[in-house]
Design a protein around this nucleic acid. Structure first.
Length: 421
RNA sequence: GUGGCAUUAGUUCAGUGGUAGAACGCCUGACUGUGGAUCAGGAUGUCGUGGGUUCAAAUCCCACAUGCCACCCCA
C-alpha cells in the first residue's frame, strides 16, 4: 500500500463498479434526449456568493457543508454543493432567454459537500439533474415528475415512492408559517431540543421530526393554507399525474432543504435503502433566476444521486450489462507473428469488436490465462503454423470450441459469432 | 457537527500479552502452441497511524485517521 490515501468521503470507481456508472449515464442521456433536453456542463467551481444567494445563507449546506477556499487572486471559491445554482447562473450569464422559452437542460457531474460520510452520502458525490426554464405551467411540473419516474423505470428500479407536496409561494407560505407557530407555541416546552431550535430557524422542519412525531399529526397542513393560485396549480399537477396513472403520495411533510423552492416540491424515496433513502428530489423555483440577476423566469428541476441509484440497483439485484467486456483477445508467439497480430487487431477493431491485443512477451499458455482473466469471449491465436498457412486459430472461451480460419474471414466470423451469443 | 460499532495479506476473516495465520485470489511450474479443473511450489503484511503501560503488545490504555450505523441534514 502506498503512502497516499484518498480523502475521506471520496472514492475510486473502476472495475465491476464502472458498469453502473456507464449504465446510469447512458440511460439518463437517452431519456433526457427523448424529452428534448440539451446537455449543459458548468464549472465545478463558482463564486461562494452564488451559493449563498441561491441555496440560502441559513441552510445547512451553506452554513457547514461547503468546500470553500481562497484562490490566488483572493476570490472566495466554492466547489459546487449542488447543480441548480450553476445552471441558473449559466442561464443568466449566457442570456439563454434568447434561445426561446421554455428551455430544457440536463447535467451530469460531481458535487461536493463537507459532510460526515455514510453509505449513500459522500463528500464528492455525483448527480444527474434537469432544469426547465421559462414556464410556470402545471403541465411542466407534471412532465418533470413523469420524466423522473420514467428515468427510474429505465434503470429497472421498482421499489420507490414518489412523494409530492406544495410548499406554497411567497404569498401563502408566510401565512402558513404563522399558523404553524401558533399551533406549536404551547407545545414547545415538551418538545425536543432540536425542535425548539427549529421553531425559530425553520419551523416547517418541525413536521419532519422523528422524535416529536405525535405533535405533527394534529398540525396545520400547508395544502389547507395555499392561496388560490397555488391550490389550482397543485390540483392540476395531480390531475395530470392521475391521467397517466403515475403512482404518488401527497406528503405534507416534504419541505425541501434549499431556500429557493416554491409551489411543487417532490422527493422520490427508495424503500430498501437506509437513512439516505431519497434518490431523487426536486421542485419549482420561480424566483431564483431573478434572485441571481436575471429577468423574472419561472423554473423547475430535480437532482438525482448516482451513488444512491447504484445502491438501489444493487438492492433490487438489477442485472447490468458490462460494456467493458472483451470480444477478442489476440495471442501470438514466434517470429513476425507480432506484426500479423497488429494487423489482425486493426481489422477486428474496424468491425467494431472490442479487442485486447497481447502486449507482453510471454508464452501462449500465459496469454491464454490472461485472456481468461480479462474475460475475453474469443481468443485469436497467431503462431508460426498460422503464419505459414495465412490462417488464424480461433478459440471460443465459453465453449472451448476451437477452429482454424483463413485470415481474410476472421473479422466476419468473429463479428457474427459474437452477435449470436 | 453529536453518539455507537469497527479496522490484521489483494479480498473475507481467525488470532485476548510470549517468533503474524487460514481460505479465496495472485505469481511460477507439472503442460517447450492453449485458459478454467487438479497437483506442487512461491510472494504476500509498518497487524490503520502515533504515543503510553509492560521484560514482552495485533492483543491492554489514550489520541488521531478511515469505514459503517443512527442523528442533524440531504442526492
Amino acid at each position: 500500500m502506498g503512502q497516499y490515501k484518498k480523502f475521506k468521503g471520496t472514492q475510486d470507481i473502476f472495475g465491476e463498479e464502472s458498469k453502473y456508472w456507464y449504465f446510469i449515464e447512458k440511460k439518463s442521456r437517452e431519456t433526457f434526449l427523448k424529452y428534448g433536453f440539451k446537455e449543459i456542463k458548468t464549472p465545478i467551481i463558482e463564486p461562494t456568493e452564488l451559493f449563498k444567494r441561491s441555496v440560502g445563507e441559513n441552510t445547512d449546506i451553506v452554513q457547514k457543508e461547503m468546500y470553500t477556499f481562497e484562490d490566488k487572486g483572493g476570490r472566495s471559491v466554492t466547489l459546487r454543493p449542488e447543480g441548480t445554482a450553476s445552471v441558473v447562473r449559466a442561464y443568466v450569464e449566457n442570456s439563454m432567454i434568447n434561445l426561446g422559452s421554455p428551455i430544457k437542460l440536463y447535467y451530469i457531474g460531481p458535487m461536493f459537500r463537507y459532510e460526515k460520510p455514510q453509505a449513500g452520502r459522500l463528500r464528492q458525490f455525483h448527480q444527474v439533474g434537469i432544469e426547465i426554464f421559462g414556464t410556470d405551467t402545471p403541465i411542466s411540473d407534471a412532465e418533470t415528475i413523469i420524466l423522473a419516474d420514467e428515468l427510474l423505470k429505465s434503470f429497472g428500479l421498482k421499489n420507490y415512492k414518489i412523494k409530492i407536496n406544495s410548499i406554497g409561494c411567497e404569498k401563502c407560505r408566510p401565512k402558513y408559517r404563522e399558523a404553524l407557530k401558533k399551533y406549536y407555541k404551547p407545545l414547545l416546552p415538551n418538545m425536543c431540543h432540536d425542535c425548539q431550535k427549529r421553531y425559530e430557524t425553520n419551523i416547517m422542519r418541525l413536521l419532519d421530526c422523528k422524535i416529536d412525531k405525535e405533535y405533527a399529526k394534529e398540525a396545520p397542513i400547508i395544502l389547507d393554507h395555499l392561496c388560490d393560485d397555488c391550490k389550482t396549480h397543485f390540483n392540476k399537477v395531480i390531475n395530470y399525474l392521475d391521467s397517466l396513472e403515475i403512482k404518488y403520495e401527497i406528503d405534507s411533510r416534504i419541505v425541501r432543504g434549499l431556500d429557493y423552492y416554491s409551489k411543487t416540491a417532490f422527493e422520490i424515496e427508495h424503500t430498501d435503502l437506509g437513512a439516505q433513502s431519497v434518490i431523487l428530489g426536486g421542485g419549482r423555483y420561480n424566483s431564483l433566476v431573478e434572485e441571481i440577476g436575471g429577468k423574472e423566469t419561472p423554473a423547475i428541476g430535480f437532482g438525482m444521486g448516482i451513488e444512491r441509484i447504484i445502491l438501489a440497483l444493487k438492492k433490487e439485484n438489477v442485472e447490468i450489462d458490462n460494456p467493458e467486456k472483451i470480444d477478442v483477445y489476440i495471442a501470438y508467439a514466434g517470429e513476425n507473428t507480432d506484426i500479423e497480430a497488429l494487423k489482425l487487431s486493426k481489422m477486428l477493431k474496424n468491425e467494431g469488436l472490442k479487442v485486447f491485443l497481447n502486449l507482453s512477451e510471454r508464452s501462449i499458455r500465459n496469454q491464454m490465462k490472461h485472456a481468461n482473466k480479462v474475460n475475453a469471449h474469443f481468443v485469436a491465436i497467431i503462431g508460426e503454423n498460422e503464419l505459414k498457412t495465412d490462417t488464424v486459430t480461433i478459440k471460443n472461451m465459453t465453449t472451448g470450441e476451437q477452429f482454424e480460419v483463413e485470415k481474410f474471414w476472421v473479422p466476419q466470423i468473429l463479428k457474427e459469432k459474437s452477435l449470436l451469443e
